[in-house]
Simulated assay, not measured.
Amino acid sequence: MPVSVQVDACPVMVEDLELPKAAIFDLDGTLLDSVDLHALAWQQALRKFGHDVSFEQVRSQIGKGGDKLIPVFLSADEQRDHGKEMEEWRGNRFKTEYLPLVRPFSAVPDLLRRVRDAGLQVAVASSAKKDELDKYLDIARITDLVDVTTSSDDAEESKPAPDIFEIVLRKLKIEGADAVAIGDTPYDAEAAVKAKIATIGVLCGGFTESSLRQGGCIEIYPGPATLFARFADSPLAR
């Protein structure tokens, strides 16, 4: 039975998708095992500035950029008072303490090479900052396999707003219907759906299959290695 996702009240059926022209990958939690590390850095930043927030509460928001995550935990007055300072502290903490611990999931370069061999362009659309994104590509060993990148620095709003995906589409010079997104959070799927992009979900970032399907994912895989192994049957090869 085909799975459908609602896009502007028009269901997009998996079996009806034409062969895409590009694959647009998220990074954190999709290609890199980094979600818990980001959650720790954010939790420590929040606590340092007087906000007692649990690890689980913070982790549920990873996948959003700081512009979307901070308002979940800080009032408007608190954001004006120390929101920017807290986000800067978080960034420095992550880069010094946790970035060296980030590792790629299995078969990430293999998957991207398979995508390129199939004739698709490869793009990365991440809520990370530009300086973090460049380092991530190096850690994942995919710098030379990516045609286009977009970070939160390029967009007015981060996921689940569609800005990052819309910028990638413009850089690729294609429409949303010509691409497939791959992400680990419902925020990836929500953002992609708003840009009219079908989305594959991966479970390696820790979000549930149910939440990914509710976000709009048309198919779910355990992680990059499984998507690589089952590439011929995936929306990337249809």
Rank of each mutant, 00 (worst) to 15 (best):
T226R: 07
A107I: 03
A198K: 11
R114M: 11
A192C: 12
E190T: 15
A140R: 05
S127H: 07
I174T: 13
D77P: 10
G205C: 11
D134C: 00
I142A: 06
P20T: 09
L236Y: 07
A181T: 06
I218M: 12
A9P: 04
P71D: 08
A23E: 11
E175L: 14
G29I: 06
P109Q: 09
P186N: 08
R114Q: 15
D28P: 02
G216H: 02
R141C: 11
V146N: 05
D16W: 14
D28T: 06
P222S: 03
V124A: 10
P109R: 07
D110V: 06
K194V: 14
P11D: 10
L145W: 05
G50E: 01
R47S: 12
V3W: 01
R141L: 10
P235L: 07
A189F: 09
I139Q: 05
S234R: 03
G206E: 02
M86C: 13
T30A: 08
A161W: 08
E156F: 13
D131K: 00
P104E: 00
D16M: 14
R238N: 01
V122I: 13
V72R: 04
E15G: 00
T149C: 09
P2W: 07
R93M: 00
A140Y: 08
D26G: 12
C10K: 13
C217T: 10
R80D: 13
F94R: 01
F55N: 01
E219L: 08
D110N: 12
A177W: 11
Q79G: 09
A128C: 10
L137D: 07
H38T: 01
W89D: 13
K64I: 00
R103V: 00
A198P: 10
K48R: 09
I197C: 14
K135H: 09
A229T: 04
F207Q: 10
V3G: 02
Q57M: 10
V148D: 06
V72L: 06
T143D: 00
V202R: 01
C204D: 04
I174M: 11
V202C: 09
A107N: 06
F105Q: 01
R213A: 09
L74C: 15
G215T: 07
S152E: 08
M1Y: 12
L112R: 06
P100T: 04
I167H: 14
A192E: 13
S34V: 02
K95I: 08
G201F: 12
V115Y: 06
G205N: 08
I70L: 05
L112M: 12
D16S: 15
A195S: 15
A177C: 14
L46R: 04
D117P: 03
L69K: 00
G50T: 09
G201I: 14
Q79D: 08
R103T: 00
L203E: 02
G223N: 00
V193A: 13
E97A: 02
R103S: 01
Y98Q: 04
H38L: 02
A41R: 03
L137S: 07
I139V: 12
D154W: 07
L172G: 15
K194H: 09
R114N: 11
R80I: 15
C217E: 03
G65D: 03
T199P: 14
L17Q: 15
K129C: 03
D184R: 01
W42R: 02
E219T: 10
L46K: 04
F165T: 10
K95S: 12
P186E: 11
I167A: 14
